[in-house]
Design a protein around this nucleic acid. Sequence first.
DNA 1: ATGAAAGCGCTAACAT
DNA 2: ATGTTAGCGCTTTCAT
Lengths: 338, 338
Amino acid sequence: MRVSIVDVANRAEVSISTVSRVLNRRDLVNAKTRERVEAAIRELGFRPNAFGRGLMLRRSEVVGLVLPDLHGDFYSEIIRGADAKARSMGYNLVVSSAAAGEDSHSLLERLQNRGLIDGVAVMISEVTEDTERVLSGFRQPVVLMDGVSPGDQHDSVVIDQERGVQALASHLLGKCGVRRVIFLGGCDTNADTQARLAAWRRSLTKARLPLVDEDVYHLDYEFESACRLAADRLDDWADPDTCVVAANDEMAAGVISAAHAAGVTVPDELQVVGFDDTRLAKLIRPKLTTVRVPMWQMGARAIELLCGRIQDEAKEPRRVSLPPALVVRDSCRANGVS
Amino acid sequence: MRVSIVDVANRAEVSISTVSRVLNRRDLVNAKTRERVEAAIRELGFRPNAFGRGLMLRRSEVVGLVLPDLHGDFYSEIIRGADAKARSMGYNLVVSSAAAGEDSHSLLERLQNRGLIDGVAVMISEVTEDTERVLSGFRQPVVLMDGVSPGDQHDSVVIDQERGVQALASHLLGKCGVRRVIFLGGCDTNADTQARLAAWRRSLTKARLPLVDEDVYHLDYEFESACRLAADRLDDWADPDTCVVAANDEMAAGVISAAHAAGVTVPDELQVVGFDDTRLAKLIRPKLTTVRVPMWQMGARAIELLCGRIQDEAKEPRRVSLPPALVVRDSCRANGVS
DNA sequence: ATGAAAGCGCTAACAT
DNA sequence: ATGTTAGCGCTTTCAT
């Protein structure tokens, strides 16, 4: 049995406007009447229909979060931050991923087509030609997270990759006696990988330790592939002054696992560092030295920007830059000594 | 500039019904007219308003997935399965979690309040008094996943915990020489923990190795707490014929980590097994013997049931039971020998 | 403080 | 094959 605002009005013996007022702006209606209406609502189990409501209000109070994937702690933390912030701002968050064969673009377009959400925070990690086209064609508030370099058109929250890499590099080069770096990235079209690699090249060049192409590998951010690659390369890599620099913690864990299997001790015979500081970094042995990316913050700030924009579409786009922090644990040498 | 169906109709010089027909049932309109309308739609960048549409159709083609939390591989896999299936059935999936201080119940009620989704698959792991009340008050299609024992009112997909535990128990008792079991569960109101613990009691009693209360611990499914507990208890536990049975892989990993730190070799001086077979089980050393729960399947089947029900609300509720499978790796003794 | 009525954008039954 | 029209459930002027 469907119950609409009319049923409530009848039962409470008021007009539908009064019911609507009780629903939206309680102060505008007499206390007694309000009680009658509220009773009717309760008794009938009435819930305002979101479509009817949305039709008038042109908003659903639902915001979306679109990530490249939902797998792994990195994204979980972002989601948590986003969810917490959305709630505290009176919005519902829905999450979707571009995984499973569909890219963020078509997903975004689908979302927009439905138009059921008031805006979306999106992380696009793969750069393609029509990213810009899709984004500019977007009719609703969007905020960009990390990933592809966001123009000035949109609000964005980014990670200061350069700063994170520099902190890591100066620790490795200065304190851990690293003389050779092996870089393990994700796919070479991945924006984070590109940013981190570029930052490494700069840091190393400055230290007169150029990163040779043979020491740069493009994998897929997964444990397994890093593990396989490392198993294969370990003979070449194993050296106290060499450090494998992975673009995320999972791959670093893969390298450590392969080293373990091959009897190569980390960090004494090979140093390894990760990136992100996901939960995994503390779970594996030795614990991973890595760069903490404030994932929770990233999600929260993105939603904050988004809701702000929804409330005022006209205002100037803002860019929030989040600083990563070096986290020293046990996978690289403490003071340049074994 | 907002553009509605009227603008399209004007531009194409047809009535709004024709535009609507082009949108919904293309075959009902003359090819030439259709082209004109499609051109107008394109030129104007028209997208049907989902609220107006939903108001008539009473559906949004969006389904929800509500999980107790989004953290960890267990949930990620469920989401992936659910997402893939939703897409293949022409629905959009939105994910929400009950974490961050809100229980599944109030979240469900909020979702229902909005009514923007056509139905929801929900996993409730904590049993409370009003679970039943909330579920029966739900006005939309719901399917229950694992967790609380689903009545016959709703479609459900459950894991056959009994079967998984039996397989594990018979391996441990029969092949690994286990004579004492330490059970590490989640919170004691957690449905999975309850089911797994009960199954263990039965299996052990049958083998005349009753599980004493002192060997049952209720933790929180987290690595850290298991790690701390193990560090504290290891003196008592360490024994080649003792096996720590954790209710998920994370806690098993915590125990192994503590053992490692204390110089207790797994599986030679203590055996450890997990549950779920998440990605972590393969990442740690020794690799974890565990019970594979078909998480992806669980998500997919739940959505399949859900969409089926949305299409036909009247049909008999179905219950799908998914069998877990024993996965033998290196954290318990191969053949009862050290 | 409350009610009447218009209209948000869309679909579908009915008419042509 | 196409147009006309009546709602879907709600919010919101504008009256009273």
